[in-house]
Nucleic acid binder design. Sequence first.
DNA 1: CTCAACGCTCACATCGATGTGAAGGTCAAG
DNA 2: CTTGACCTTCACATCGATGTGAGCGTTGAG
Lengths: 128, 128
Amino acid sequence: MRIGELAERTGVSRRLLRYYEEQGLITPTRSPNGYREYGEPHVDVVQQIKGLLDAGLPTRIIQQLLPCLDKPHTIYAPFVTPEMIVTLQHEQARLSERIEFLTRNRDAIADYLGTVLTVSERREQITS
Amino acid sequence: MRIGELAERTGVSRRLLRYYEEQGLITPTRSPNGYREYGEPHVDVVQQIKGLLDAGLPTRIIQQLLPCLDKPHTIYAPFVTPEMIVTLQHEQARLSERIEFLTRNRDAIADYLGTVLTVSERREQITS
DNA sequence: CTCAACGCTCACATCGATGTGAAGGTCAAG
DNA sequence: CTTGACCTTCACATCGATGTGAGCGTTGAG
């Protein structure tokens, strides 16, 4: 498919799709006329990228992460340098921290909402 | 304490502390001479802000979140408008999505690392 | 053939989070 | 009284993620 269709199916603008490519996150092939050609798997990859970006990860990290996020679990082991492993472990730890932090905050909000809602319920009973 | 100490204790630059204030996230008092004066609780708040920012939340959301993230669980209920509640519920949902997404990805990396490490162990046994 | 809809590249604009520095005020130690 | 280490405001710079548009090529339908 071409860039327009992919944009529509992923909700990511054409501009950004080209940007992702520039950042080395996706590498579509080119038709003879120079048009970018995307395959079906790109839909998932782009959504993955979008999600990670939304989650606050920078593209240069996403680039490191992507190769180990595909389903068929291809073994890239021979190409994996020790440095990459270290980077991945490091990133994994950072992800965990982030998750923990967000969870704590979400739970705090839940608590708060719980309290607030109970109180306003009580108030409703009184005023009614 | 003044801005320098707070910066040192939180690891957040003076510049950013002023920026947070400009964004309405913290409101230090002023000494007669115009210097910003921070209290002990600001240390925690600033670290909270830093964490949320690192987690990818924009300041305008953090501003909404902060009032319900303090420990003594003050009841702000009387001041809470229905719109704010809706916003909070919405933000809570978004946080959950983010958490879920990050968790999935972290686990995928864990899987990958698991596989890669096992393979390289096996290789070591062979070559040794 | 022409026109609309799409694609391409390139470049400049914006926005939020930050850095950096200028020009000046405050204050404590020597 | 001076010097150095703070503080102030203001403004411009940068960086990453995005938008927008100009100028031009491609393609398919009428």
